[in-house]
Design a protein around this nucleic acid. Structure first.
Lengths: 222, 222
DNA sequence: GTCTATACGGCGATAGAC
DNA sequence: GTCTATCGCCGTATAGAC
């Protein structure tokens, strides 16, 4: 029997549905709390099919992480390219660099695409975990982040080396908690401020970290 | 038979050892990845003893979280009290408020106490999780955080309400990633910057978030 | 009350038959 | 590709030792 052709208006392939289900569940509950039975049930396939396509559970998790990594990286490399090109022979400004760093993420986060939002929440999970926080983030995002740091060095030639790395750390933390989407802000503010207002969240974040970076990269080493 | 008196130079009680072991393991691997057998093995006690003292696994987790919550909260309330008292009739400065907020944490984090460092890593885990991020953080830290937000309102009477809440969000994210201690910074900087240099990390963090807060609370709503 | 040894029911990932 | 079986480990209950 012929495999059914996958046309745009049809359901995604089973393999894709497994990835989608895994992405959603891992993002919400983490790696260990989620079972293959939950994933395959949500995907509407047999339990064993996950193992058939992806091997052990850990490899499925990696496959989920890898699926969107290139798309994300390319978008952000392009933004940084344009930022540097716009600066021409001059050094780029901190403002422009931060805009290039956060812009593509804000656009994705703000989009209606549920899969991408799950993916960002998963990145938040990974970034804060001991198992993956060092390893995976390095493996997938180091080239991009190193370019970003290099751009900051151009913008702030007098800055202390460590101040730049710590700046990146604080930015990464603020960003990650935004991805995580815990709803904490809504509760804390009694509903007056919504963590799902990503537009405002990214606008403020840009200003916040830009000011923060300028502050600690301009001052004397403490 | 008399319960053995717990003198300083003796081993802690078994109950305490279970809490210590659970704290260390939960902080490193999260709730679901850790088994009661690992915990009790590390504590050097029988499996069933965890259940005897604390009931179900989830309750043990809560007991770990609760154990140090009061101490932490009291230290931070006191710091904020002193900050407000020092300001007298004037409004406190943003710098002083941030110092009061981060100071006690920096001191604890920088101390040699392993248990406290595990606890802070656990807070990082909780703060980023969907299950606990909203609920537990609210339950334990809302009064303190609300006082802190109130102090910021005094310091920045013109500030937009939402800008203050988002400021807290970015601060919380930066702080949380610092607690998490993933070693990412060390790898990224090829060893030139160490995430375990908490002294530098907190000093920079204070300047960073102070500048960030002033920036987004002074400007027009974006 | 504190603690240990053991047992139970259940569900996990995965391999092998089909 | 699919289904079923297996085996191990999980959290927890219990019975009794100290």
């Amino acid at each position: 029997m012929a495999k059914p052709a996958e046309t745009p208006e049809q359901k995604p392939s089973r393999k894709t549905r497994i990835l989608d289900a895994a992405e959603a569940l891992f993002a919400q509950y983490g790696f260990d709390a989620v079972t293959l039975r939950q994933i395959t049930k949500l995907a509407g396939v047999d339990v064993a099919l996950a193992n058939y396509h992806f091997g052990p559970k850990r490899d499925l998790f990696n496959a989920v992480l890898e699926r969107r990594a290139d798309v994300l990286n390319n978008a952000r490399h392009t933004a940084l390219d344009e930022c540097l090109a716009a600066a021409g022979d001059e050094a780029p400004t901190v403002d422009a660099i931060i805009e290039a760093y956060l812009g593509p993420l804000g656009k994705i986060h703000n989009s209606a695409d549920e899969g991408w939002r799950h993916y960002l929440a998963l990145i938040a999970y990974v970034n804060n975990s001991h198992e993956y926080g060092g390893e995976f983030m390095t493996q997938f995002f180091n080239p991009l982040v190193k370019r970003f740091i290099e751009a900051l060095r151009l913008a702030l030639p007098e800055a202390d080396e460590k101040a730049i790395y710590w700046s990146y750390h604080y930015l990464s933390g603020a960003l990650t908690l935004t991805f995580a989407d815990t709803g904490r802000l809504d509760v804390l503010s009694d509903g007056s401020t919504s963590s799902s207002d990503t537009k405002l969240g990214y606008a403020h974040m840009s200003s916040f970290v830009t000011a923060g970076i300028k502050a600690i990269c301009a001052q004397e080493t403490p």
